[in-house]
């Protein structure tokens, strides 16, 4: 059963790994993915993440359950932040544990691909001059194709 958090506060990757792995010495592989706020042109002041409370948690739990049914995971943790973030801040964390690396690597990538296309979050970028909602990318939708089999 995956552990899901949708929160405004930051997370500590080391603490999350320790808490997830605790007491489980069958674990032989730990994969983590962290997504952070990018500032490509040096103009970003704030990135604000809006989400749909209630549906967000349900959707992340649904995606995690699919991953757990597909790969032999020994642990799964997803944290996604919302609210006003600054360049360099953490946005999302996925941690997967398994006996061997293959399952943990694949499940982490799967979780991120599905999260990007299904979890109800919307990013708004605020520069000094204007505010604009980030557009969805076709590459994110295409990333799902490789899992459809």
């Amino acid at each position: 059963m995956a552990s899901i958090s949708v929160q405004s506060n930051d997370f500590d990757i080391s603490e999350e790994i320790v808490a997830l792995k605790k007491g489980n010495n069958e674990v032989g592989a730990i994969v983590t993915f962290t997504g952070t706020v990018r500032d490509v042109g040096g103009t970003l002041k704030t990135m604000t993440l809006e989400h749909y409370p209630g549906m967000t948690e349900k959707e992340l739990e649904r995606i995690a359950a699919v991953a757990e049914a597909r790969w032999p995971l020994l642990g799964c943790r997803i944290i996604h932040r919302y609210g006003a973030l600054k360049p360099g801040d953490n946005i999302v964390l996925v941690v997967t544990l398994s006996a061997h690396r293959g399952a943990a690597f694949k499940a982490a990538e799967f979780l991120m691909d599905y999260l990007k296309s299904n979890a109800p979050f919307w990013k708004k970028e605020q520069t000094g001059k204007d505010n604009s909602w980030v557009s969805s990318k076709q590459s994110d939708a295409s990333a799902l194709d490789k899992w459809e089999k």
Binding site: G35, E59, N118, W122
Partner: peptide, 29 residues
């Protein structure tokens, strides 16, 4: 669109007690 917090298509049948969310493509992660 999501109907009762589950993604749905524009052809989904809806009722008077439903919660219907309307939003652009998601951009989290």
């Amino acid at each position: 669109v999501a109907v009762n917090q589950v993604h749905a298509g524009h052809d989904a049948v809806i009722g008077d007690e439903d919660e219907i969310a309307i939003f652009p493509p998601v951009t989290g992660g």
